[in-house]
Design a protein around this nucleic acid. Sequence first.
DNA 1: TCCCTGCCATGACATTTGTCAGATGCGAGG
DNA 2: CCTCGCATCTGACAAATGTCATGGCAGGGA
Lengths: 202, 202
Amino acid sequence: MTIRLLLADDQALVRGALSALLALEPDLEVVAEVGAGDLVLDAVREHRPDVALLDVEMPGLDGIAAAALVRAEFPDVRVLIVTTFGRPGYLRRALQAGASGFVVKDTPAAELADAVRRVHAGLRVVDPALATDSLIAGESPLTGRETEVLKAAQDGSSVAAMAAKLFLSEGTVRNHLSSAIGKTGATNRAEAVLIAEGNGWL
Amino acid sequence: MTIRLLLADDQALVRGALSALLALEPDLEVVAEVGAGDLVLDAVREHRPDVALLDVEMPGLDGIAAAALVRAEFPDVRVLIVTTFGRPGYLRRALQAGASGFVVKDTPAAELADAVRRVHAGLRVVDPALATDSLIAGESPLTGRETEVLKAAQDGSSVAAMAAKLFLSEGTVRNHLSSAIGKTGATNRAEAVLIAEGNGWL
DNA sequence: TCCCTGCCATGACATTTGTCAGATGCGAGG
DNA sequence: CCTCGCATCTGACAAATGTCATGGCAGGGA
């Protein structure tokens, strides 16, 4: 019995290449390919795959959010998250969203098919090195507002701009920012953003 | 006659997948795969490919620098740059380094093989949309020092830290920074870094 | 109920950042 | 030779940023 696959990745070239790679395996069949997170759920409804391979970094809806939606509506569809960045927070959030596996893009190509089979068999597939990182980094220490403010700071906005966007006073924005800087161990806003990004807290 | 290919990409999964994709074409043969820019030249020496597919974002030596080395030693080896980011500066630098083609990773998978064939035939392959962007964005307006200072600012360093790293006075660093902010049309350091990155000027 | 935490806000303060004017030295090009 | 652009520095100033103390308000336990 062949395993039916859904592929989601925003980069068409990578998507097509992965499709070619997996098509080499006689027991795997790619039944759908999409290039945006918003399209994942519809594609699952239409093609009913056994396993969904979702990239985290996608326009619209990211792979983790898409995974949550898929699992909510189709609990029997397994989700395998594939991502460029092995960020601890990604792994944690992916598992919370109901993903069965988590693979970074620098694992050997030969292992991907196996990962798909294991996930399909009901096992969990997690990069061991990443799992320990995830334990060390832990959950995000940031409160909701701190996270929002840091996100708003990602594009280099001034305090005034962030305050306007979030409907907060400038003082409040500065307080959340200061608090986030303290929690991340950074010494300024830009560093705090980088650290939070690296841990997958944003 | 088959076209012999070298593949360079730091993400093993993508590398393997591209290999599988290209292996589907009867006239193409992947003769070498490497995962770092430093290894490209050695692999070319050993396997003498007709075309080298190089990713820009790689550890050690980036794809553009590797392209220049390859072209210097083997002028008959064609280089096709493949990259995630369609940054205008990348294209410009790639062509200056002697690359014959430039493909972003969200072009359809079916076109890659054609791009390889065109490059092998001595033609240039360039994404038209990107080419116009490249013309508009133009060369980097930043001087050498301004570029260095912006690079140093990428990690959120303070002026003092940058001054220490570059052996400059703090005032000088602030001046270069101010100048770079002006040239990029930004209003602060973080924004200037983002704009310069987006244009491939760093 | 009381207490704690998170969220919002204010005002004051020191530090950092961005800007500007002015000055020197160097190399390339007319 | 003179000029221009680049790099370097200094000093001064205004604006933005980060920190702190303090207070109010809401919701969720103990």
